[in-house]
Design a protein around this nucleic acid. Sequence first.
DNA 1: AAGACCGCCAACCGCTGGAAC
DNA 2: AGTTCCAGCGGTTGGCGGTCT
Length: 217
Amino acid sequence: MGRQPCCDKVGLKRGTWTAEEDRKLIDFILTNKRHCCWRTVPKLAGLLRCGKSCRLRWINYLRPDLKRGMISDSDEKIIIDLHSKLGNRWSKIAAQLPGRTDNEIKNHWNTYIKKKLKKMGVDPDTHHTLVSTAMTDQKQKEVEQEDEQQQVKKEEMDIIEAVEEILLDDFNDQELKMISAPSSSALFSVKKPADISSVDRWLEDSGCSLWGMEYSG
DNA sequence: AAGACCGCCAACCGCTGGAAC
DNA sequence: AGTTCCAGCGGTTGGCGGTCT
């Protein structure tokens, strides 16, 4: 018995979201602050979309705590540094940059940073300096050693993350509010972005507190 | 002016891990 | 232990606007 698709795709709308659809989705989330499963959201919200599409739209575009606009040079440096340690783990990287989504960072990496690094003579995949001549055996060994060290570092990071998760499980919500990093946005009041979009304004007018996120002007 | 080409990025797809039963 | 479902993740696609010829 195979797994059922996430939704019945027949008759569902695809492609770019309209302002009306955005409004319906936001409206639904506003009036249903208790998180139910995404599968039921389009049906209840009156949308001809699959739940997955709704979730993605919310996470990548409609969430009120999203930062809009260019990624700064300092953020870019953080992304490059984290990518050298974590690889293509965009969600982990995004977690260190509040207000940025994994999709946004992934797109930025693929369109800007990759080219930038190549221009600077750095391989964006390995973060090693690109050499025009063939590597000597000694150099090859060095690179392999470096790769090994990176792998060990990566594994250490995984262990640290796992331990952090276990430790955090032992705190209650109140304690978490006091100790959590700002990246855990669901637990924090979100500052209003400088360039307030129409959706942001509408959310603000509605005095919204979305699924655990307070929206403070 | 218009068709071809290119780059950006929103959205989709397929897969995985974990929870629930 | 096996099955089903869900959320989340990362790779990929395609629409659209801008630029080039």
